[in-house]
């Protein structure tokens, strides 16, 4: 029970706790069921399932049709251009995290990519750095920084619109948003409109990237909530493991 109440306090910190939303763990005699409960790392499952159900309804009504429309209106080479542009605009955040992680080579690559793609790549639309200089985009964020600093992810969270998360990565997401100087640049309604457009495009781009996977889950899973939880937790953990391994093998 202690584990559960600690997890719940974390949830409270994330500002998400509704009273009575915690799952009851299996009795301690049932060791295997208890192990499974711990592996799922989802003490707030009832709340998470409710949020997932709301999100799924919104998805069917609006978000999926919007993503499909985006794909139809904007053909593939242009969508890649949008993706490149968004990645280029995110450079300050990526660079900040490269440095916070003590990765000067990564930071150098990020900065070099920005300079090349902003000039030769027409403001970032074309990823010249990857195509001609062999320096591919490498995503980085404050959630990863925290992970490399040794912060545990905490319990599973399903956030409407944002999808599968955990308190560490949710905090990281918030820090990344606030840390982006472009979000603070200028004022007035035009700038605000641009910021909203930017956020909207970022959202559409990320949805576009995972839409096929989501459709696959909807088509094949007997319990999409459990499937998305398992896949997202494993993939995120593997990503962190890969980063840790890279750091160990780095000179």
């Amino acid at each position: 029970m202690r584990e559960v109440s600690r997890s719940c306090r974390l949830l409270l910190a994330a500002g998400l706790l509704l009273l009575g939303a915690c799952a009851t763990p299996p009795p301690p005699e049932d060791a295997e069921a208890l192990a499974e409960f711990r592996a799922a790392n989802d003490p707030a499952e009832p709340l998470n399932r409710t949020l997932f159900a709301i999100d799924r309804a919104a998805d069917r009504l609006a978000l999926r049709p919007l993503t499909i429309a985006y794909r139809e209106v904007v053909p593939e080479p242009a969508r890649q251009g949008v993706r490149n542009l968004l990645r280029n605009l995110r450079t300050p955040v990526t660079l900040m995290n490269d440095m916070l992680q003590g990765e000067p080579r990564r930071a150098g690559d990020t900065l070099g990519r920005f300079l090349i793609n902003t000039t030769l790549g027409l403001g970032g639309l074309i990823d010249v750095a990857d195509a001609h200089f062999g320096v591919p985009y490498r995503r980085n964020g404050f959630g990863t920084t925290l992970a490399l600093w040794g912060v545990e992810p905490g319990p599973y969270l399903y956030l409407p619109l944002l999808g599968p998360y955990n308190p560490r990565d949710a905090l990281g997401f918030g820090v990344d948003v606030v840390a982006n100087p472009l979000a603070w640049f200028g004022q007035g309604s035009e700038v605000m409109a641009l910021d909203i457009a930017w956020a909207g495009m970022t959202y559409l781009d990320q949805r576009d990237a995972v839409q096929d996977q989501l459709d696959e889950v909807e088509r094949t899973s007997l319990d999409p909530y459990a499937t998305i939880r398992a896949v997202s937790q494993q993939q995120r953990a593997a990503e962190i493991d890969r980063r840790r391994a890279e750091r160990r093998s780095a000179p």
Binding site: A39, A40, S221, D223, Y225, A226, T227, A230, V231, Q234
Partner: peptide, 10 residues
């Protein structure tokens, strides 16, 4: 592993 979680949930 993913299918195991899915089936366990069901």
């Amino acid at each position: 592993l993913t299918q195991r979680s899915e089936y366990a949930a069901v």
